[in-house]
Simulated assay, not measured.
Amino acid sequence: MITRDFVGLPSPPAGRAGAGGHPCQGVYHRPAGRRPRTAFIATHYNVDFSEHYLAEHLAARGYGFLGWNTRFRGDEAHFLLDHALADIGTGVRWLREEAGAERVVLLGNSGGGSLMAAYQSQAVEPNVTPVAGMRPVPAIEDLPAGDLFIALAAHSGRPEVLTAWMDPSVTDETDALSADPSLDPFDPGNGPPFDPEFQARYRAAQRARNERITDWVLARLDALEGTRARDALFTVHRTWADLRMIDPSIEPSDREPGRCYLGDPAKANYGVFGIGSLCTLRTWLSMWSLRTSQCAAAPHLARITVPSLVVHATADECVYDSDARAIFGALAARDKTLEFIKDSHYLPGSRPQAADLIDAWVRER
């Protein structure tokens, strides 16, 4: 049997909510009547991981599993990396001091891959700085490090993912329908299939769009200096347009063609649900900007030396083989392993297999 304990803790930067709720919340899964010596913690930038799909499977194999949420769960628009790392540290410390875990495994799943990499990176070699105009968070200067690191169906970082997915044909950031026909990925005249010249222009235009938004954000912050407002909300349209979502001949895999996480990319791209669709000026700089974000995985992976496992789902709709290999290559760990599972992003058909794989890898270490 599995015991599930609710865990609610104050956030180091934010304390406790006035209504009584704890900003940091999660569910600790463990074998009934036992205090596991090894425990996992999984956290995401935005998605609720309290009932993570591997929690029960790993608890059934004798581990503790804390599905943990920072105060930015469901509130991506206001995300700040240094604040989130402080909240994750609260969960890791709870595992060691209250749950009795002697060994902590950092599980970076999906977008959480780069987030948990940033956590371990900061814990072993402090490097994360506040976003422009924000005060330092003292709690991140003394984070308890993890003992093992796992990247599971993980993206290569928030600014990289947004840029790879964004539609560069947008000509007016205030108009969701504006489009440059020569870059429109859904114009049949451009493909699919998309020829190498179009792909090169498209990728360059995606990066250029990210940089234009960063220029605008920095100018807006300068304009707000001395006014009554310190920050502002804005929207980013059309972020489901990675050419690989549309053309399966680009980086072929076991994925279903013409699909993204929200189904048909054309419909999703012009819908209202998308990563980075709403954010503040400072959240853009903290999470999404290629120029200023510290949420890119590679620099943090280069500071991770603990044994590390990378697991790639070969039918993943939006994480590709190149992502997994880039993560594997960037890890500084001498003891690192790359494994593959034939399934889609959330492993709906292979969770026991994934749990067995992870269990065997952890026990060997």
Rank of each mutant, 00 (worst) to 15 (best):
M1H: 13
M1S: 11
V7Y: 07
V7E: 04
G8K: 05
L9N: 04
P10S: 13
P12F: 03
G15D: 03
G15F: 11
G18T: 13
G21Q: 12
H22N: 11
G26E: 00
R34A: 14
A39T: 03
A42C: 14
H44S: 15
N46R: 15
V47E: 11
V47Q: 09
E51D: 15
Y53M: 02
Y53Q: 02
L58Y: 11
R61D: 13
G64A: 07
F65T: 00
G67T: 05
G67V: 03
G67H: 03
T70G: 12
H78W: 07
A84E: 08
I88Y: 01
V92H: 05
R96Y: 08
E98Q: 15
R103K: 14
V105W: 08
L106S: 07
S110Y: 04
G112Q: 00
M116I: 07
M116F: 06
A117S: 10
Q120L: 02
Q122P: 09
A123Q: 05
G133T: 12
M134D: 11
P136K: 01
V137I: 14
P138H: 12
P138D: 10
E141F: 06
P144D: 05
D147S: 04
D147I: 00
F149A: 03
L152Y: 08
A154F: 05
R158P: 09
E160V: 15
V161C: 11
V161E: 08
W165A: 07
M166N: 15
D167H: 11
S169T: 05
S169Y: 10
V170L: 14
S178A: 10
S178Y: 04
P181H: 11
F186Q: 02
P188A: 10
P192I: 06
A223M: 09
A223D: 15
L224D: 00
E225F: 00
G226R: 01
T227V: 00
A232V: 12
V236E: 15
H237M: 09
W240Q: 02
D242P: 08
M245L: 13
D247M: 09
E251S: 10
P252Y: 08
P257K: 02
G258Y: 00
C260E: 06
Y261Q: 03
G263I: 07
G263L: 05
A266S: 12
A266N: 09
A266Q: 14
V272D: 14
S277K: 15
S289R: 04
S289G: 06
S289P: 11
R291V: 10
R291M: 03
T292K: 06
Q294I: 02
A297Y: 03
P299F: 08
I304S: 07
E317G: 09
C318Y: 15
V319A: 11
D321R: 13
R325G: 07
I327N: 07
F328E: 01
F328T: 01
L331C: 05
A333S: 15
K342R: 13
D343V: 06
H345F: 12
S350T: 12
D356I: 06
D356A: 13
I358T: 04
D359Y: 12
R365K: 05
